[in-house]
Design a protein around this nucleic acid. Structure first.
Length: 596
DNA sequence: GTAGGGTTAG
């Protein structure tokens, strides 16, 4: 930063006789200023070049157009660009890219067409700048057009073009097209591999991401921080602690720790894999933190039910000078809901709106409903919903339904389910919740009729599963799973535990309620089983007294929570139980059993 | 002087 200022001052001091050189210096320094998002400094440089009279050189102008675009000052960029007499290709490319990264796709396309009409030959940078990587939604047809154009002109063989296309297709969940582009690209750069790996992890296809990661190493392509960031995200999604630790070792040996993406991904990985202490140690030892780093740590605490720590960190963030984002508030609110911190959640929500001027989105409202609902304040939750300035969507009603389940409010459950079935008829989760509520109060005919709807409409439900890592190996259990090699020992351990739990006063309300119901009904309680199986296995397979960490994918959780507490008490083991949605991906879960 | 790949919530 200081060096940059010096360099600018030097330009000033040297004056007219070195005008040409100074102009070149300015053009060189601008991209760095843009990357640092130093709007003020860039404007000073702009003023300086006006003063010194080389502001009209095309190199400087191109740099300024690009700089203002990257800082979100698209109007300034447009103004400058319009003033240029005959912009050359590089300058036009800068403007095309400027429009695109500010979400002004139509203007970008118009300029591109104008360029083509003028007979100018476009190059790979033109195409890359035209691809709406940051704002792809709703532009699939345009992207297809750019793709065809690239194939027709042969420019698709340029690895930058094909990487950008791979990325944009991945973002639109068009993963097969993305893979085809990757496979057909004649010279795969490191970025090509990274684009495909990231495409997989962002779509939850962790198995494919991992195998491509192995493949690239077989081709002697050396992973860089970008690669490892994606791989760490895959580990986090899988709960793959030992793989994550291995990657951490790689990060250290390659001295990538100072990369902010890598350190943030590491913190997130440790938190999601159950090692919150490790996560915090890394967080504290990381000198450079951005809003995402803070968010990852706050949500990590939330995941572990450590609401107080989450709030503490949240307030430290507010004083750190790092500006909060919508995700910051979501993470903090989520932590409050898991820890039953109603007053604190309310304060954070109010502060978000009034002190920070954030317009809440549906997820924030849903979090508030969740906070009130979980705490048993169902009336207040409903009141809150009724007072919303916008029409509440599925996340809001879903949160209310979840709360009704915990507090067994059948009437309100019926109201929210009705809304949910209208708004989101394909989502099986809501049917399962409602059916469970009916079952819990022994209203079997109603429960059966809800399940009938699921069956009739042929809706697929997400299978519940629980993961546990023992030593270096991950083990995944589903409901009633008998596929594990140590199945007999696991089930007898479970028997033993059930007996002891009963002696200790454990009453499995829901399970008894479901006792005389058909097999399929028991399946609705999948995660209870899978979680217990995983714990039973953990007890057998690990050293007495050691910590047991399990990760599950479904949110519904009434009986298992109490059962886990009992088991922990009886066996004297610390049991860390995490649930995160990113673990809710079938492919990833399957890969676990195969990989080892 | 323009252009490719990355982290956080649900």
């Amino acid at each position: 930063m200081e060096e940059m200022k010096e360099s600018v001052e030097m330009v000033g001091r040297n004056g007219k006789e070195r005008e040409r050189e100074s102009a070149r210096d300015v053009a060189t320094v601008l991209p760095a200023v843009a990357e640092l998002q130093e709007l003020r400094l860039g404007m000073e440089i702009h003023c300086l070049s006006l003063k010194l009279g080389f502001h009209d050189r095309v190199h400087v102008l191109t740099g300024l157009v690009s700089f203002y675009s990257k800082c979100g000052e698209i109007e300034k960029a447009k103004l400058l660009f319009r003033g240029i007499n005959r912009p050359d290709l590089i300058c036009s490319n800068a403007m095309i890219s400027g429009y695109t990264c500010n979400g002004q796709t139509e203007s970008s396309v118009m300029l591109f067409k104008k360029l083509l009409a003028s007979g100018e030959k476009v190059n790979s940078s033109t195409i890359v700048g035209l691809i709406p990587v940051s704002f792809p939604f709703g532009h699939l047809r345009l992207i297809d057009c750019i793709h065809s154009f690239s194939v027709k002109t042969g420019i698709v063989s340029n690895s930058s073009v094909s990487s950008a296309l791979t990325t944009v297709y991945s973002k639109l969940n068009e993963i097969e097209t993305a893979r085809q582009l990757f496979d057909e690209s004649p010279e795969k750069s490191l970025a090509s591999w990274n684009a495909m790996i990231a495409g997989y992890t962002q779509n939850g296809l962790t198995e494919q991401a991992m195998s491509l990661f192995q493949e690239m190493q077989m081709f002697n392509v050396i992973p860089n921080p970008v690669t490892l960031t994606s791989i760490l995200s895959a580990c986090a999604q899988l709960g793959a602690l030992s793989m994550g630790k291995w990657v951490h070792g790689l990060v250290k040996s390659k001295k990538f720790e100072s990369n902010i993406f890598v350190s943030t991904a590491l913190i997130d990985m440790y938190a999601k894999c159950g090692s919150i202490v490790e996560a915090r140690q890394l967080f504290d030892s990381t000198p450079e933190k951005n809003e995402v780093t803070w968010n990852a740590m706050i949500s990590g605490y939330g995941l572990h039910g450590r609401g107080r720590e989450a709030i503490q960190l949240f307030s430290e963030m507010m004083h750190s000078g790092i500006r909060p984002t919508g995700v910051t508030f979501l993470s903090a609110l989520y932590a409050c809901s898991h820890a039953g911190l109603v007053r604190e959640g309310n304060e954070i929500f109010q502060s978000m709106v009034h002190d920070h001027g954030f317009e809440p989105i549906a997820e924030h409202y849903a979090c508030m409903v969740d906070i009130l609902g979980r705490a048993g304040q169902l009336d207040k939750a409903l009141e809150f919903i009724k007072g919303l300035p916008v029409e509440p969507g599925p996340p809001v009603w879903g949160a209310l339904l979840g709360a009704c389940m915990i507090h067994k409010d059948t009437n309100l459950a019926r109201v929210s389910s009705k809304k949910l079935f209208e708004l989101d008829p394909e989502n099986v989760g809501y049917y399962v919740l409602l059916s469970n509520i009916y079952s819990a109060e022994r209203n079997y005919p109603q429960a059966a009729s809800v399940r009938q709807v699921v069956k009739k409409r042929n809706l697929a439900k997400t299978p519940g599963c629980t993961l546990i890592e023992v030593g270096e190996s991950p083990h995944v259990f589903t409901s009633g799973d008998r596929s594990h090699p140590q199945t007999t020992a696991i089930y007898s351990k479970l028997e033993e535990l059930t007996g002891k739990m009963r002696e200790a006063g454990f009453q499995s309300e829901t399970v008894t309620a479901l006792h005389d119901v058909e097999e399929e009904e028991k399946e609705l309680m999948v995660k209870v089983h899978s979680e217990k199986l995983a714990i039973a296995f953990g007890l057998i397979a690990t050293e007495p007294g050691s910590e047991i960490r399990i990760i599950k994918n479904l949110r519904v959780c009434l009986d298992c929570h109490t059962a886990t507490k009992f088991i922990s008490k009886i066996t004297g083991r610390v049991i860390v139980c995490l649930q995160h949605m990113s673990h809710n991906r079938k492919h990833g879960v399957r890969s676990f059993n195969r990989q080892t």
